[in-house]
Amino acid sequence: MWADETMQIGRRAFLKGGALLLAAGPAGVMAAGEQANKGSKALRVGLITDLHYADKPPGGSRHYRETPRKLAEAAGQFGQSQPDFVVELGDFIDAADSVEKELTWLKTINKAYSGICEDRHYVLGNHCVDTLRKEEFLEAVERERSYYSFDRAGYHFVVVDSCFRSDGQPYGRKNFTWTDANVPQQELDWLAEDLKQSERPTIVFAHQRLDVSNSHGVRNCPAVRDVLEQSGKVRAVFQGHSHQNDYREIGGIHYCTLVAMVEGGGEESNGYSVMDLQTDGTIAISGFRKQNDYRWPAG
């Protein structure tokens, strides 16, 4: 396994050497890792997280109105990379002061996201259901469930919903504290059964982190990790929420936190990635802009 520090150094060097090429067009250029992986993939997935789109001025380091332009750059790259499907890992929109305004923001950014790929997936983040209820968000993006699984090309994928309070109540209409994120028992039972029924190597998508016990972590993450580890099938978990690149291996599972698209002004502050699930079992992440690269061999 490559050390995270090594991956960060390699990514910085690529951006420094390719800055002019990246600035030359919305699609940028193919990352070094993706070029090397081309032709050996079993499946390719586009990944973005924490867009926080809102039609409002910047708040601290978050540049809400720049998200559509950053997403357009990612869409251009995905157009070149041709992922089999795309996933956004939560906080698709930021909180609004009314349901009507938040639905308008959601419609705007979802129109851009929908144009990237027909096979697309949404992970619920706490900001997605700050003003909206889950049912309203899901209806707007034409999805039925907030947690579910699906199969593609020999792999099993699971979308997790951690937007529940400790008492099991779902987030919605500002009825929660963002640090009180939980996977309720009903979902845990479903997850265990779902993994039991599948014989395929599995990738999990989450918003709140499953690898830490601080304010950005799911409060019952040890119980969730136990289910994942006991299955013996989960290779990696991809998550957002804390807005910075981070990585841990726990119980033989890779936990990869991706960088937020909303952070920082200007195209150079963007972040998105392409994941190749290779025929030999290797998982390779080609990061763009501020997103790190990773490569995890099978076994």
Results as ranks from 00 to 15, higher is better:
2 W>I: 13
2 W>R: 14
3 A>V: 08
4 D>N: 11
7 M>E: 15
10 G>N: 13
11 R>Y: 03
13 A>D: 12
23 A>K: 13
28 G>P: 03
30 M>D: 04
34 E>H: 12
39 G>M: 07
40 S>Q: 13
40 S>W: 08
41 K>R: 11
44 R>F: 03
47 L>P: 00
48 I>C: 12
48 I>F: 10
51 L>R: 01
52 H>P: 04
52 H>G: 05
57 P>N: 11
57 P>S: 02
58 P>W: 05
61 S>C: 05
61 S>H: 10
61 S>M: 09
63 H>D: 06
63 H>I: 07
66 E>S: 04
66 E>Q: 13
70 K>R: 07
70 K>Y: 01
73 E>D: 07
74 A>M: 02
75 A>N: 07
77 Q>E: 04
78 F>H: 01
79 G>M: 07
81 S>C: 08
89 L>E: 11
89 L>D: 12
91 D>F: 06
92 F>A: 04
93 I>W: 00
97 D>Y: 14
98 S>Q: 05
99 V>E: 15
99 V>H: 08
100 E>P: 00
103 L>H: 03
104 T>W: 08
106 L>A: 13
109 I>N: 09
109 I>Y: 11
110 N>H: 15
112 A>V: 08
114 S>D: 15
115 G>S: 14
120 R>C: 09
121 H>C: 06
123 V>M: 03
125 G>H: 04
125 G>M: 00
128 C>E: 15
128 C>G: 12
129 V>N: 02
129 V>D: 05
135 E>I: 07
138 L>C: 06
139 E>C: 06
142 E>D: 14
143 R>N: 11
143 R>M: 14
151 D>E: 15
152 R>A: 12
152 R>K: 14
155 Y>T: 04
156 H>T: 09
156 H>L: 03
157 F>P: 01
164 F>L: 14
165 R>L: 13
167 D>P: 03
167 D>C: 04
170 P>A: 15
170 P>T: 08
172 G>M: 12
173 R>K: 15
178 W>F: 14
180 D>I: 13
180 D>Q: 10
182 N>R: 13
187 E>Y: 01
190 W>M: 06
192 A>W: 01
193 E>C: 11
194 D>M: 05
195 L>K: 00
196 K>S: 03
198 S>A: 08
199 E>P: 11
202 T>H: 06
204 V>M: 06
205 F>C: 09
208 Q>S: 15
208 Q>I: 09
211 D>Q: 12
214 N>C: 05
216 H>L: 07
216 H>W: 12
216 H>N: 15
217 G>D: 09
218 V>S: 02
220 N>Y: 07
221 C>Q: 13
222 P>K: 10
222 P>E: 05
229 E>Q: 10
229 E>G: 00
235 R>N: 06
239 Q>M: 15
241 H>G: 01
243 H>M: 04
243 H>T: 07
245 N>A: 10
246 D>K: 09
247 Y>K: 10
249 E>W: 04
251 G>K: 04
251 G>N: 02
254 H>W: 09
256 C>T: 11
257 T>W: 00
257 T>M: 12
258 L>F: 13
260 A>V: 01
261 M>W: 00
261 M>L: 14
261 M>P: 00
264 G>P: 03
267 E>C: 04
271 G>R: 00
272 Y>P: 06
273 S>Y: 09
278 Q>V: 10
278 Q>E: 15
279 T>W: 05
282 T>F: 02
283 I>Q: 05
284 A>E: 10
289 R>P: 01
291 Q>N: 11
293 D>E: 06
294 Y>E: 01
295 R>P: 00
297 P>F: 11
298 A>F: 06
